[in-house]
Design a protein around this nucleic acid. Structure first.
Length: 274
DNA sequence: GGCCGTGTTGTTAA
DNA sequence: TTTAACAACACGGC
């Protein structure tokens, strides 16, 4: 499930394959179907002959910056994949779009089994408005403990629900919310407004630490996720609570519990997370 | 073989 | 206004 570490890994693996190349055409895969946001035919012309200047990430969005003031944006949703393959290679079953690249024989393919992903083209100058219209929150390494404390203090939601809210922190999803709360020894169902400044400080550090480790392991592959080269991640082997229901807590050996919170499966140690 | 769980985001309802 | 619930989607596992 692509969250910040997976998206960051995709960006890092795509960068050397895309930077400096030129998009020569866009084609639909043989099994292409309507995505959450339908592809607009006019976008093809806005991409044609554009040289790729860079690839970057904002939250869970992937931004491909193009010469001439256009940007190609991807969101992987739950099962989206973005990878570079040879143009003549067979289309995956749920491949929706292919972006041909020169020089060379490569093609950037967008695949998405469940079609919760999104592709769009925007003028680079409108990116700021786009993200502010979406009320996208701060990157996890860009806020202070005091800021997090204030954001938590102002709401009566569970602390985990706040972590998952992209309008507060951009990029954290279900897996890393659970792992960060374990690292911070915070119970996921704690009311956000009851989290102290000291606890908020620990939580901020935990989030940054967990995400950094996950990026070092190239993200987590549960089922669908692969990086821009089609490689799986390794952080699923480092999970301490996520998907470890009933297994001993790595700190105190108490069996990991699982509850439903904010509509999501939530894993935690009932002994050492309080 | 039908049903459930899976997680992200946008929409709807309370 | 804030918060929770739900729909969208396909597939693996039981």
């Amino acid at each position: 499930m692509p969250e910040l570490p997976e998206v960051e890994t995709v960006v890092r693996t795509l960068r050397p394959a895309l930077c400096g190349r030129t998009i020569t055409g866009v084609r639909a895969g043989p099994f292409a179907r309507r995505l959450r946001l339908p592809w607009k035919p006019a976008w093809r012309d806005r991409l044609a002959s554009r040289r790729i200047l860079g690839v970057r990430r904002r939250g869970k969005w992937i931004i491909v910056d193009l010469k001439g003031g256009e940007a190609l944006l991807f969101h992987l949703g739950m099962t989206g994949r973005l990878r570079v393959v040879l143009r003549q290679s067979e289309w995956a079953k749920h491949a929706h779009l292919g972006f041909a690249l020169v020089p060379g024989e490569a093609e950037l393919r967008f695949e998405d089994v469940r079609r919760f992903g999104a592709v769009r083209v925007l003028p680079t100058g409108e990116l700021g408005d786009f993200f502010s219209d979406a009320k996208l929150g701060l990157e996890p390494d860009a806020f202070s403990s005091g800021w997090l404390f204030e954001r938590l203090r102002g709401t009566r939601r569970c602390v985990k629900a706040v972590l998952l809210d992209q309008r507060v922190i951009a990029g954290v999803g279900n897996i890393y919310a659970d792992e960060s709360l374990f690292e911070a020894k915070l119970h996921p169902a704690r009311l956000a407004c009851d989290v102290s400044l000291t606890e908020a400080d620990g939580l901020r550090r935990a989030i940054v630490r967990v995400l950094r480790r996950a990026i070092e392991k190239h993200g987590s592959t549960i089922r669908d996720y692969v990086d821009g080269n089609g490689q799986s991640g390794g952080y699923q082997h480092e999970f301490r609570v996520y998907d470890r229901t009933g297994q001993p807590c790595p700190r105190c050996r108490t069996p990991i519990a699982r509850i439903r919170l904010a509509g999501r499966s939530t894993h935690f140690c009932p002994q050492c997370q309080t």
